[in-house]
Design a protein around this nucleic acid. Structure first.
Lengths: 160, 160
DNA sequence: CTTGACCTTCCCATAATGGGAAGGAGCATA
DNA sequence: TATGCTCCTTCCCATTATGGGAAGGTCAAG
């Protein structure tokens, strides 16, 4: 099977298949005399595994670990589980961060007239959150900072 | 004020201040004869605006729009609100995707013994989701695909 | 004048993916 | 057989936002 067919069968683009090979995530397949890559069903299986794991949000490096565990017939399921659980925690952390942002913005948007007038609590908050009403969500990367947040007073919409 | 002081005052690293200037997000400040950048309080104010917007998850390009609206004293608050609302939608889309991943993985992890035995429904699912029990979350980027998903049967834990 | 802290520009790296060029290979049809 | 279309190869570049670090100039204090 050529790379194009393997791509269709695995739902991984040929481009990505070559990339995964280049970083050693998957093993290099044999080549024809014309230097074409030739894939077997097992290769497609592995590619689907990678695809699925990526779809579940695992990083390529995490997929590498999972592949190693998959190939290791004597792995302990506890090892797999811990990789998965850690990833769930990562996901939940990110979810919380995004939710905090969405909450803040939804709140600000709710207090914005959204008409032709220029007064806008959203811009007011961006320009000076301390003087405004919305809590500050921690920044996405790294740990949360300590900033001059303020409680949400539910006012601040300019009289217009 | 030198860039280092502006950085401290705005909580934006000197590196990023230069970067924002290079992409035209903020205006280039005047320079001393020694070619040092000199910032005024308004510049710091703008940097804080950028920082806050970035913390709320707006992309740099979105921040560019917001800055333009901020500077335009005759903007319509509706324009600001629509930028904000669109971003909230983006956030919620991403949140849903991450939640789908977390749900699937949590479920798989729950069915995994997590002991010394090699049998692992998590790996089984990655290797062949159709034969397994977990629903397939849509892939993060681009629109959701149509795949051979299956309902969640709540079994598949190998007898071990 | 030396030292240390600060500034400058420039290059590189990250993560995962896509786009596209230039050229070879394979196959079908006129 | 020659033309042509589709596929393959490698190689380079772009993306997003940020950090690291080198090489060299500047400033202020001692």
């Amino acid at each position: 099977m050529n790379i194009g067919q393997a791509a269709k069968a695995s739902n991984v683009t040929a481009k990505m298949i070559r990339y995964y090979e280049s970083i050693g995530l998957i093993t290099a397949p044999i080549r024809t005399q014309a230097n074409y890559r030739v894939y077997a069903n097992d290769d497609v299986h592995a590619l689907r595994f990678v695809k699925r794991a990526r779809n579940l949000g695992f990083s390529v490096e995490e997929v590498r670990e999972l592949l190693a565990l998959w190939r290791d017939k004597s792995r302990a399921s506890a090892d797999v589980k811990s990789v998965a659980m850690k990833h769930v925690q990562d996901l939940e952390t990110k979810i919380s961060e995004l939710q905090a942002m969405a909450r803040t913005l939804s709140h600000l948007a709710r207090t914005c007239h959204g008409d032709g007038r220029p007064d806008c609590p959203i811009l007011a908050d961006l320009a000076d959150p301390a003087a405004s009403l919305a809590p500050v969500p921690g920044k996405p990367k790294r740990k949360a900072r300590q900033e001059a947040d303020c409680a949400c007073h539910e006012d601040a919409a300019l009289p217009a």
